[in-house]
């Protein structure tokens, strides 16, 4: 368990976190590894975990009929998975390892119970996730603008 705690301390998501909280959260974590091309989760499946990526690249994909589209990639020091926070707890995309991925996987039924039991910790944790969600949302806004697209008029 101490090993997980040490890994989490190096991850920016947990920067500045209360030591006792970190120990609690680390108790829900486990080291995982995904091979190239392996799916980490699939759209529509039950979301019962999130991942803190330690190394490697994860592609978030949506199936668009004529092929799968990569909508975002996440790398070392990123977090992915917030579907566990909000009912009905289902993944909204596929996640696939583009490179060998090493991550800490958090079991969220364990984590949800701990957060419910300690609202102060739960609130701190929620704020960290809110930042991840907002960053992701801002990035997505820029992407959907199609700002490099060919203009319809010009000289």
């Amino acid at each position: 368990m101490e090993g997980i705690e040490k890994l989490l301390k190096e991850h920016p998501f947990f920067e500045g976190i209360d030591a006792a909280d970190l120990a609690t959260i680390a108790g829900c974590g486990a080291n995982v590894r995904f091979e190239v091309g392996e799916f980490i989760c699939r759209e529509g499946e039950e979301a019962n975990c999130f991942y803190a990526i330690r190394a490697g690249r994860v592609a978030l994909e949506l199936s668009a009929g004529n092929g799968d589209i990569v909508i975002q990639t996440l790398d070392q020091n990123d977090i992915f998975g917030w579907s566990w926070l909000i009912p009905p707890y289902r993944w909204a995309f596929d996640a696939r390892a583009v490179e060998v991925v090493r991550a800490v996987r958090f079991d969220c039924s364990c984590l949800r119970a701990k957060c419910d039991g300690d609202p102060r910790m739960g609130y701190d944790f929620m704020k960290r996730f809110a930042k991840v969600i907002v960053d992701r949302l801002e990035a997505m806004r820029l992407q959907i603008l199609d700002m490099y697209g060919k203009p319809t008029v010009g000289v």
Binding site: R57, I71, N77
Partner: peptide, 22 residues
């Protein structure tokens, strides 16, 4: 980085701002 890509793209997908911290 690119705003969107097919599966054969192995480099980052996302706005250029996401490269800055890296």
């Amino acid at each position: 980085t690119v705003d969107s890509a097919g599966r054969d793209w192995r480099a980052p997908v996302g706005p250029v701002t996401t490269l800055i911290p890296r």
